[in-house]
């Protein structure tokens, strides 16, 4: 019978926390840039200009058809070399963190843009007509009338996507970047306690994600109220 030994965890907490900060940093960056870029993509997709709409659709379909792991690998393998070339960085500079953030942000934007597009379309057309009828122009109608309502409807879906993203950041493991999962794995590997550390990491992911999903439930009730 396997004997659990949790003793290596308390001492490793500061290191694990460093990992958690990496995870949160990647998640937060990807959420912020993903939503901003995703909003732009959604606006392009819904715009009357064919070229913009087509470009946005192509982008979204491309990223939604490629496994996230592959996108990340590309970013880890190709982007650093491009950056080195373009910005004249010293070869071997550690741009893994930047690559990870960029990869996630661009990938998530594709998903966010679809959520945002649906959210914008969920706002009744009469709302825009009412704004126009008051003399409000397209831009302000979007900003003052449509987007606030759209975002209200979208909050649960955006949060759900953020929860998925938070879990998916563990894929930076392929670049040996020490996010929370990577840190836990390293500690386990060092102390020969991989099972305990992975169980602990799993528990932490569970608590965070489950709490967040309760929050989603709360927002869902609020939105439908």
């Amino acid at each position: 019978m396997y004997e659990f030994d949790w003793s290596s965890i308390p001492g490793a907490l500061p290191f694990l926390w460093t990992g958690m900060k990496v995870t949160l940093e990647i998640t937060a960056t990807a959420i912020v840039f993903g939503i901003v870029w995703g909003t732009l993509l959604a606006a392009m997709r819904l715009s009357p200009f064919r070229v913009l709409s087509w470009c946005s659709a192509a982008y979204v379909n491309l990223f939604r058809s490629i496994p996230l792991l592959m996108v990340l690998l590309w970013f880890f393998l190709i982007v650093p070399q491009v950056l080195e070339h373009v910005f004249g960085l010293a070869p071997g500079s550690d741009v893994r963190m930047t690559s990870a953030m960029a990869g996630f942000a661009l990938f998530e934007a594709a998903y966010y843009s679809e959520i945002i597009r649906a959210g914008i379309q969920s706002v009744p057309k009469g709302q825009v007509a009412a704004a126009y009828a008051l003399g409000i122009g397209y831009g302000q109608a979007m900003w003052l009338v449509v987007l606030p309502q759209a975002f209200r409807n979208m909050v649960p879906l955006l949060l759900t996507q953020a929860i998925i993203l938070f879990q998916d950041t563990s894929l930076v493991y392929v670049s040996a970047l020490a996010d929370f999962f990577g840190a836990a794995y390293k500690v386990g590997d060092r102390d020969g306690r991989i099972v305990e550390l992975l169980l602990f990491a799993g528990a932490v992911y569970f608590v965070i994600c489950y709490s967040a999903s309760l929050l989603v439930k709360y927002f869902r009730r609020k939105v439908s109220a």
Binding site: A130, A133, L134, G137, P148
Partner: peptide
């Protein structure tokens, strides 16, 4: 400039279309 014209023409809709937020 339609927005200038619309600003001077009041409109009331069947479904009110107040801004709910």
């Amino acid at each position: 400039k339609l927005s200038n014209l619309r600003a001077r023409v009041g409109m009331v809709f069947q479904h009110f279309e107040l801004f709910p937020h």
